[in-house]
């Protein structure tokens, strides 16, 4: 916990310094072109840019802690509002991708390990090593080309709110979610297959087989449950990749999430938005990783005993 707080502090300092490091005077972004030095000085005073560094950091952090990230240079609207508006899109993408990845990789990983060298395993190995070599931005465009341009079966761009039309909502999400899920699917499948392969050769699985238990029960209860701990351990990493991944996917499929927000903000040099999004994602990532560490002992009775 102490480590978590210390990291949080470091991250906030780094994110704050991000704005300081940006070359050029931040006032340039705030004042119209050709502003007089007096105007610039006024703006400086208004935004507290003349205060010492530490004081500015303290007031910024105070604001952030109260949910005030500042106002966009561009739109003059509170950044918190923009984020609140867009976060649900990214969140839905990430959650759906996680669900899809698990739904595909768990059965495939388990069966590949159960019948190594079988056709499921061989096809899975082929597909995973191909997918591993296909960056998400390549895969996304490929999917758009195949399903949107050639087959014309799925919409390729845009976002339809769920309240407006649920069917359209989800059909617009199929390709983005698949793109996002593919990479995680590969990671999960490989991890689970390797882990299951080892577990299946352990005595307790042999012992369960030697008691004549049904195969599905051996796989689910005696092997998968133990192997799933490693899935939990990497899920922290996966969440990080998903947060990064939504940036790409939102850009390809023009979805109004946090990813497109941050990319547009960089292009229009709206750094306060960048700063806020980076801070927020790092916070979520750290929080999820800590959560994973905390839930781990709840799952494994052996660790549960050791820590209690």
């Amino acid at each position: 916990m102490a480590r978590f707080l210390l990291l949080l502090l470091l991250v906030s300092i780094a994110v704050f310094m991000l704005l300081e490091l940006i070359p050029g005077d931040p006032v340039d972004a705030l004042v119209p072109e050709g502003a007089t030095p007096e105007m610039r000085e006024q703006v400086r005073e208004l935004y507290g840019l003349n205060d010492p560094l530490l004081q500015r950091y303290a007031s910024w952090l105070g604001g952030v802690l109260q949910g005030d990230f500042g106002r966009s240079f561009q739109t003059r609207l509170p950044v918190a509002e923009a984020i609140a508006e867009r976060a649900p899109v990214s969140l839905e993408l990430a959650v759906l991708a996680m669900v899809v990845a698990l739904a595909i990789s768990v059965p495939v990983g388990v069966w590949s390990a159960y019948r190594p060298g079988g056709w499921v395993d061989r096809v899975a190995t082929l597909v995973t090593s191909a997918t591993l070599a296909t960056p998400s931005f390549v895969l996304g465009i490929l999917l758009v080309y195949v399903f949107g341009v050639q087959l014309k079966v799925l919409p390729i761009l845009g976002w339809v709110p769920f309240s407006q039309d649920p069917v359209q909502h989800f059909s617009h999400l199929v390709l983005p979610v698949l793109t996002l899920a593919a990479g995680e699917c590969v990671l999960f499948t490989r991890l689970l297959r390797g882990d299951m392969l080892a577990t299946l050769q352990q005595d307790h699985v042999l012992s369960a087989r030697a008691r004549g238990l049904p195969t599905w029960r051996i796989l689910a209860r005696h092997a998968l449950r133990q192997s799933s701990f490693s899935l939990v351990t990497v899920s922290g990493v996966v969440i990080g990749r998903l947060i990064g991944g939504t940036v790409i996917v939102e850009s390809i499929f023009s979805l109004p999430g946090m990813g497109s927000l941050v990319v547009n903000a960089i292009i229009s040099r709206d750094f306060i938005v960048v700063q806020s999004v980076v801070l927020l994602t790092a916070l979520i990532y750290l929080l999820m990783n800590t959560l994973v560490d905390l839930t781990y002992p709840l799952l494994d009775p052996r660790v549960r005993k050791a820590t209690s």
Binding site: R3, L6, L7, L10, V11, A14, V15, L18, L21, I22, P23, I239, G240, R241, I243, G244, G245, V247, I248, V262, V263, I266, F271, V274, V277, V278, T281, A282, Y285, L286
Partner: peptide, 24 residues
């Protein structure tokens, strides 16, 4: 270890985006 954990505290792509935002 703290430094390593600090580097790992950012999702990779977000980390890069932040960096390119700061450094041209």
């Amino acid at each position: 270890s703290l430094l390593i954990n600090f580097l790992l505290a950012f999702p990779p792509l977000i980390f890069l985006i932040a960096l390119v935002a700061a450094l041209r």
